[in-house]
Nucleic acid binder design. Structure first.
Lengths: 137, 137
DNA sequence: GATACTGGTTACCTCAAAGATACTGGGATA
DNA sequence: TATCCCAGTATCTTTGAGGTAACCAGTATC
């Protein structure tokens, strides 16, 4: 069997939403990474994907199954058991995900730096904010 | 000066929305590609990005400027002139975009094939349920 | 005057994704 | 009899991306 998934494998502090690369839906890339080491069960995936609701995980997996990225195998047991596994097509995304992560490691700090510099610049943006009365928390 | 942009450079029939990779917002990757050959003016970008509204192009360019992907240069002329240009950080996305396009060229047909097969499959779940104890590939 | 040009801004609307919360079935277990 | 477990469903609400249309300032043209 495969090793259990590390519940800490995705750092919630890491603002992946700020990463300008997305594979599929919000959770698709993380599901692919979870399945990299072998087949996994539904509730096994819910550990590392902290905060995902069963509904959204179901939606994500169904969409991935439809696109041929994962296979779903349901065993007629009790309690029920369902396993998900990457297809060759799903595995082909791993290199792309690795490229995106490499880009992030190399360039994301510069992006945040630019963002911070922009947000704290005394330029016309401050004026525009003052004019609109927009509140920034 | 640079050559004019080809208004056909993005095929509207190409379902890029189906491509499971996204760089930044919906238009970010296309803007990067438009700026690959040199600086461009606002309305120059609106040609290839068929269907983009000025509001969304403004939002996209502002966000990219904030993230240090493009520079915005406004000339105090009449009529006004504004030019956008890729930064080194923005250019660093080109390799990632190339990787995503390579993946799509290679694997997107298989994805669509899987999707079509799934959508026109006869039985919903009966075939996908494994027999008890049976080893599934 | 009236209109057009450029590079936008603003208000308003729509729609789908995401999330919160609760509930299901049916055998196994206490 | 009651409860637990897994793999989901069902329903509602929120969020936010994206789109439509109107408007702006300053100059130049008709």
């Amino acid at each position: 069997m495969v090793e259990p998934l590390d519940p800490q494998m995705f750092d919630p502090v890491c603002p992946s939403s700020a990463m300008p690369i997305r594979i599929g839906d919000k959770w698709t890339a993380m599901v692919v990474l979870c399945l990299e080491g072998g087949r996994r069960r539904f509730n096994e995936l819910r550990g590392p994907l902290r905060g995902i609701t069963p509904k959204v995980l179901t939606q994500t997996l169904r969409a991935m199954e439809r696109d041929g990225l994962v296979t779903r195998t349901a065993y007629d047991e009790n309690p029920p058991r369902v396993e998900y596994e990457l297809t060759a097509l799903g595995r082909s995304l791993l290199t792309l995900i690795a490229a995106a992560r490499a880009w992030s490691r190399e360039h994301l700090p510069a992006l945040f730096e630019a963002r911070d510099a922009h947000d704290s610049s005394p330029g016309p943006s401050a004026l525009r904010i003052a004019e609109t009365g927009e509140v920034i928390r």
